[in-house]
């Protein structure tokens, strides 16, 4: 890394990392008044609340959130990859209409979508179930996944698949060994998008989940306007860490360039 690269690297690390410093300090502070630059007293009251008083609630929320976000991300990919491929590689009548319909759940306020679907979900017995909440998350996640993968497939050269077939690869082998490695960065981005979107859903989870599914955002949002900054900071960190882990874990494959085909 040369001097300029190093400067850029540290600028990014600082600008991304700095906002977490006050959060960390707040979560360990007992007393911190203006104009003190540093907390006057440190203590573990906030973390005590997170781990003991609200411990079982938060652990439950963490598990529920993870399961929901992983399921939603997986299904988003299952739908998004074929859809993105179709939209990226082929032209067909009504393509723009399809794009409009896909983008609808993003344009329409989520509150309207969730409330409108709630009535139907009650009638279908989906309200207050895990499946129902996954479905409502999918209405927001699937469009993003499709749009990301649409872009990926626009740059994709299917002739490479033909080359593989000529060399005797089966259809499954082509998907697994040719297509997936080539679009992997895009797939990771789409999965990450879906995971993070689902991870941060509050209102739709509340309306469709009806309090049966207590996710982390529900616990966090309820606490946010307490004015108890140490506790809010501690819960925020608990909320951020898994998302951060997901980001770091996927960073390698995002940073990697997809395999380039030979034209």
């Amino acid at each position: 890394m040369n001097g300029r690269g190093r400067l850029l690297f540290w600028t990014i690390v600082l600008s991304v990392g700095m906002p977490f410093v006050p959060l960390l300090l707040w979560s360990f502070s007992e007393r911190w008044f203006f104009p003190a630059l540093w907390p006057q007293d440190f203590g573990l009251r906030a973390w005590g609340y997170v781990f003991t008083t609200a411990g079982s609630q938060i652990l439950g929320g963490l598990t529920t959130s993870c399961l929901l976000a992983l399921t939603t991300a997986a299904i988003s990919l299952l739908v998004g990859i074929p859809a993105g491929r179709a939209l990226g590689l082929y032209n067909f009548p009504g393509k723009r209409l399809v794009a409009l319909v896909l983008i609808m759940p993003i344009i329409v306020p989520p509150l309207a979508v969730a409330m409108g679907l709630h009535l139907w979900f009650i009638r279908l017995g989906l309200a207050e179930t895990f499946a129902g909440v996954v479905l409502i998350h999918l209405t927001f996640c699937v469009p993003y996944a499709i749009f990301v993968l649409w872009g990926v497939f626009s740059d994709y050269n299917p002739e490479i698949e033909e080359q593989a077939r000529t060399l005797g690869a089966s259809a499954g082998r082509v998907v697994w060994s040719v297509m997936l490695p080539m679009i992997l960065p895009g797939v990771t981005v789409a999965a990450l998008f879906s995971f993070l979107l689902s991870w941060s859903q509050y209102l739709s989870t509340l309306i469709i989940g009806g309090g049966k599914l207590l996710t982390l955002p529900i616990l966090l949002f309820a606490l946010m306007d307490s004015g108890d900054r140490p506790v809010a900071a501690a819960v925020s960190l608990v909320f951020v860490v898994p998302a951060f882990v997901a980001l770091v874990a996927s960073a390698r494959s995002i940073g990697r360039r997809g395999l380039q085909g030979v034209r």
Binding site: Y49, T53, A54, L219, A222, L223, M224, S226, D228
Partner: peptide, 9 residues
């Protein structure tokens, strides 16, 4: 309303 750690506790 779950905004107060004291009430929640």
């Amino acid at each position: 309303w779950g905004g107060s750690p004291a009430v929640n506790a």
